[in-house]
């Protein structure tokens, strides 16, 4: 049977307003307001949806991998409720704050340990760091081709067929498995799981592996060091135009007159 791995990242909810966040004293973490649960990174949800669409179409076994430290299991079990067959958590103190290279090393080692997959799916970039590197890193470390920015992924008899988005159109790309694909939001939102599946998923005990289980040495893995996060001062004073809709339209036109030649 076709095998698919989906790599998902747990992130601080990107939709929560920034004014409620604090930057930790060490400058290296963003502290959400109490009671803000972490979520799956949105593009990773799109990647899982792509996997489930393939499962619907041709059948496949979908394994979800997630790496981190102190992972919120109920959040990650959402992937099982949505239709994934297996959840593997990669948890270790060493996995906290890994950069793209370290993360790719851990995920590639996991994929190797599991004997490889026909398709590895990732989100195009994480909702927190927006770096867009891990997918291509996994492919480089596994020595398999990577196709990015998929809006559609299909499996034919011999190849994986991907529609990838271009700035003004799309292209159709084919590669024989094993192949890594990164998903963009055009693939569609992750399906809503039925309540029964949510309850069943909460009873599943996921496999948990640490650095020692994977035999991965992260001592010299860092390529990019975070010095600190900060909130840049960017606010500008907005001049408000008031009045009736017609008066507002007149006011905006006056501004436009001086700006458009």
């Amino acid at each position: 049977m076709l095998t698919i791995a989906v790599c998902v990242k747990q992130v601080t909810d990107p939709e929560a307003p920034l004014s409620l966040f604090a930057i930790a004293a060490d400058g290296r973490h963003l502290v959400p307001p109490p009671g803000t649960p972490p979520v799956l990174s949105t593009f990773d949800e799109n990647a899982l949806e792509a996997a489930l669409k393939i499962k619907d179409a041709v059948g496949s076994r979908v394994t979800v991998l997630s790496m981190g430290n102190k992972l919120a299991k109920p959040v990650l079990k959402k992937t099982l409720a949505a239709g994934a067959d297996e959840l593997i958590l990669l948890e270790d103190e060493q996995f906290e704050d890994l950069d793209s290279n370290g993360t790719a090393m851990v995920l590639a080692a996991t994929i190797d340990k599991l004997g490889g997959f026909d398709i590895v799916l990732c989100g195009r970039q994480a909702a927190d760091t927006d770096a867009g590197q891990v997918g291509m890193g996994i492919a480089a470390k596994l020595g398999i081709p990577a196709v990015t920015l998929a809006r559609k992924v299909e499996v034919t008899d011999t190849s994986v067929r991907v529609e990838r988005i271009l700035p003004y159109g799309h292209e159709v790309v084919e590669a024989a498995p094993p192949v890594l694909v990164t998903a963009s939001n055009e693939i569609g939102e992750l399906r809503f799981p039925p309540v029964k599946a949510v309850i069943a998923a909460q009873k599943v005990q996921p496999t948990v592996w640490g650095a020692a289980d994977l035999g991965v040495d992260l001592a010299r893995s860092t390529r990019a060091n975070l010095v600190k996060f900060f909130v840049p001062a960017r606010d500008i004073l907005c001049e408000m135009i008031g009045g009736s809709p017609q008066e507002i339209a007149n006011g905006i036109t006056e501004v436009l007159k001086t700006r458009i030649v």
């Binding site: 960017r234 606010d235 500008i236 907005c238 001049e239 408000m240 135009i241 008031g242 809709p245 017609q246 507002i248 339209a249 007149n250 006011g251 905006i252 036109t253 501004v255 436009l256 007159k257």
Partner: peptide
Amino acid sequence: FRRAHYGAVADWREVVPALTQKCRAM
């Protein structure tokens, strides 16, 4: 409104038709 140079608190459905008409003339 914290990033805009000019702002109007209004329903766009009321402002945009008037603005379009005004801009066509202008």
